[in-house]
Design a protein around this nucleic acid. Structure first.
Lengths: 334, 334
DNA sequence: AATTAGCACTCAGCGACACTGAGTGCTAAG
DNA sequence: CTTAGCACTCAGTGTCGCTGAGTGCTAATT
């Protein structure tokens, strides 16, 4: 039904349209690409492609524009991820390697992605539940308040104040700290719930109320609260060419963590690229290219870019994939 | 030179123009405001105002539009800050009171300001140098690395990894921690430099290299690095009416911490409102209304909003002032 | 001296109109 | 199946004239 040439025509249309943001007609198509058939032939092919819903005309007597479905086919079958050049890879590596704290890694990643793709970059912080406890610190602020600090192997540091039901002296705080570290060190936070349950007998009865206050903050608040932390950057790229229409919607989406999370989507297989086109994202005319990144093994979180449906998919996918890999590598090291 | 009525005319022009984003003519001015003179008289006044540079015509045979200079005069002499209603004040208070960590306070403040003013909100984190040390924690990560955690009385928690020149056992880390806390607790970070200098004799010679590594991170890195941390929100408000022109510039400015800092400006007297109009901000057609906020006494940092020159200054100033006050109050409590 | 009525003038915005050219679909021939 | 040829469509552009809001100036009025 769609022979080789028709697919080539679709590919050419997508490529041309992405380049010159204008409807592409049969003539210019034949010229620019090495198709050695006449425009009339192309027109027939285009008629078929249009009938199938891969391309559309903005109005009669205008060239064709790819539809969401057209982009979909292009991404799935007509294009391949464009690998970064050696120079680009080196630039990515050195740029990311200069970061010290986790915050800085994430910040740099956002900037990098935005610059590389000339689009809006979105990066999710490494999930706490996936990472392992490196250290837990308790600092007594006042008799009834302690500061709980959690350090993970992905370099993330989370803190929260715990209000204690009873006064706690330094000694009992120290004891609790020691117990927590002894039991949780190296464990995933997801496993912590089970582990903590078995702690009761190692704690004096008198201290249990305080201990369980700390536990509940550790499990509920810290583990969950920042799960969804997502940052973005490169919004200036929204102002570029034609994006003026859905702009408000996009900006609003960016400021809502929950929406942003949904846009990044859930990973199928880690490190696989996810491409969501147009309506699939819930934002008219907007596509999202995302990937999971990992730190030393398991998937940790996701990152990606958000841009107009009309975007350079192969290049964007290449950039996202490369950045995801290097971020994983950096995080895995520390 | 500018009698009472001419000033009234300017005020009316600003108010009308801000309301109906259209050049305002002599006729509609007389109608809408209770000026009991004829349009012709107003025209004479407008001619003078134009000559003085307070208003301008987009083209001949169009109404007048305020110039930056016109807005300046309006803000300085023709308007007064519009106080928030009791209901609004209550809403602000309860909204901010719900926040626990400093991050959350800042986050909520940004959202609040953006919503209240329907503009882009910008909030600077409390300056470290202004706050006092509540506690310093050292956590040994490996023989050659310790994590330095600084907790301030504004609730801010900063951490950084220190690479040690020599191996350090737990005991020496503990000792260092004790010394640091003993000496710095309750001191301002700005004073810390002096204080630290006197620490040398309390530390064994063998440990001095490690100690000074920690000191330098504490003084240089922590104290300075995040000085300039500024967050913003409400960018969706940029997409609203007519702002489409300078949009790219504004978005770019927002993503550059340094530029953002400059926009917030340096406070004259704390809690005084600063209004910078048009060219004064360095961004064509953009104004900034900012204020310092404090936590229990001294000025801590600044916050404000950024919007089109054509904005409701009295209302915006009222909102900024109110939010600055409540943020200060919240931070002062903790 | 300030205000006002009257009047001529300017010009952005808008609809009407026609022209152009890129692009199409169809048909008939290769 | 491909292609040449041709009639057709229509967005975009430019021209023209009109309208109306708004101005500036002058002369009369207070």
């Amino acid at each position: 039904m769609l022979d080789e040439r028709k697919l080539a025509v679709l590919r050419a249309i997508v490529e041309d349209y992405v380049f010159t943001i204008e409807p592409v007609g049969s003539k210019s198509l034949v010229d620019r690409h090495g198709l050695d058939v006449s425009p009339a032939t192309i027109r027939n092919d285009m008629a078929v492609l249009e009938e199938q819903g891969f391309i559309a005309q903005p109005h009669t007597s205008a060239g064709r524009v790819p539809t969401d479905k057209g982009y979909r086919l292009f991404v799935d079958r007509l294009s391949s991820v464009k690998p970064m050049s050696a120079a680009e890879r080196r630039a990515i590596e050195t740029f990311l390697a200069g970061a010290y704290s986790l915050d800085e890694v994430v910040d740099r990643t956002v900037r990098l992605l935005a610059q590389l793709t000339r689009q809006v970059a979105v990066v999710q912080y490494p999930l706490l539940s996936q990472s392992r406890v490196r250290h837990i610190e308790l600092v007594s602020l006042s008799p009834r308040r302690v500061l709980l600090i959690l350090i993970t192997d992905t370099g993330r540091v989370e803190q929260d104040v715990v209000e204690l039901p009873e006064d706690a002296d330094n000694e009992s705080v120290s004891h609790l700290r020691a117990v927590l570290n002894a039991c949780l060190d190296g464990h995933k936070l997801t496993d912590a719930a089970n582990t903590v349950a078995g702690l009761a007998d190692r704690i004096a009865v008198a201290e249990r109320p305080n201990a369980s206050a700390v536990f509940s903050v550790l499990l509920d608040s810290l583990a969950e609260r920042h799960e969804e932390r997502v940052v973005f950057g490169g919004t200036a790229n929204l102002a570029a060419p034609d994006f003026a229409n859905g702009l408000r919607d996009v900006l609003e989406a960016l400021e809502e963590q929950v929406v942003l999370m949904r846009l990044l989507g859930e990973s199928a297989s880690p490190s696989a690229l996810t491409v969501r086109i147009g309506a699939e994202t819930g934002l008219e005319g907007t596509s999202v290219v995302a990937a999971a990144y990992d730190a030393g093994g398991q998937a940790v979180a996701r990152l990606g870019v958000l841009g107009p449906t009309r975007m350079d998919y192969p290049g964007t996918m290449g950039a996202v994939r490369a950045v995801a890999r290097y971020v994983g590598r950096i995080l895995g090291e520390s």
